[in-house]
Amino acid sequence: MARKKIPIKKIDNINARQVTFSKRRKGLFKKAQELSTLCDAQIALIVFSATSKLFEYATSSMQQILERRNRHSGVQGSDISSTGQQQLGSESFDMLRKVVEDKTHELSQLNGQDLQGLTIQELQKLEELLQRRWTTISKIKEEKMTQEINSLKTKEAELTEENQKLKQNFYEQKLVREQRQCYESITSSSSDFPADNGSSDTSLKLGLRLFE
Rank of each mutant, 00 (worst) to 15 (best):
S151V: 00
E142Q: 11
G117E: 08
L110D: 09
A50W: 09
E156P: 01
L107W: 03
R68I: 04
D79Y: 03
E143Q: 12
I120Y: 03
E128W: 04
I46M: 08
E128Q: 15
S61P: 07
Y171S: 06
Q64R: 10
S108R: 15
I137P: 00
D79L: 12
I46D: 02
T160H: 13
F170D: 01
S90K: 03
R71I: 05
T136M: 06
D102V: 03
Y171N: 07
E148V: 00
S82V: 01
T135S: 14
K103A: 11
M62A: 10
I65E: 02
E127Y: 08
T59V: 03
E161H: 12
M145H: 14
D114Y: 06
L166K: 13
T119N: 02
T146A: 10
L118R: 01
K103L: 13
K165H: 07
L159Y: 05
E91K: 04
Q164N: 02
S138W: 01
K125F: 10
Q131M: 07
W134R: 09
S92P: 00
L118W: 02
S108C: 12
K153I: 08
L118K: 04
M95Q: 09
T83D: 11
S151L: 07
L159T: 02
E127S: 15
S49H: 03
R132I: 13
E172M: 04
L129R: 15
N169A: 04
I149T: 13
L129I: 06
V99M: 13
K139R: 10
D79S: 08
M62T: 08
F93S: 02
I46K: 05
M95S: 10
K103Y: 09
S90L: 07
S78D: 02
W134N: 06
E143F: 08
L166Q: 10
T104V: 12
V47D: 09
E172S: 07
A157E: 14
K165F: 01
N111P: 00
D102C: 09
G89Y: 02
F93N: 00
R97G: 09
R132A: 11
R132F: 07
D94E: 09
E148Q: 14
E106A: 15
I140W: 03
S73V: 01
K141Q: 14
L152D: 01
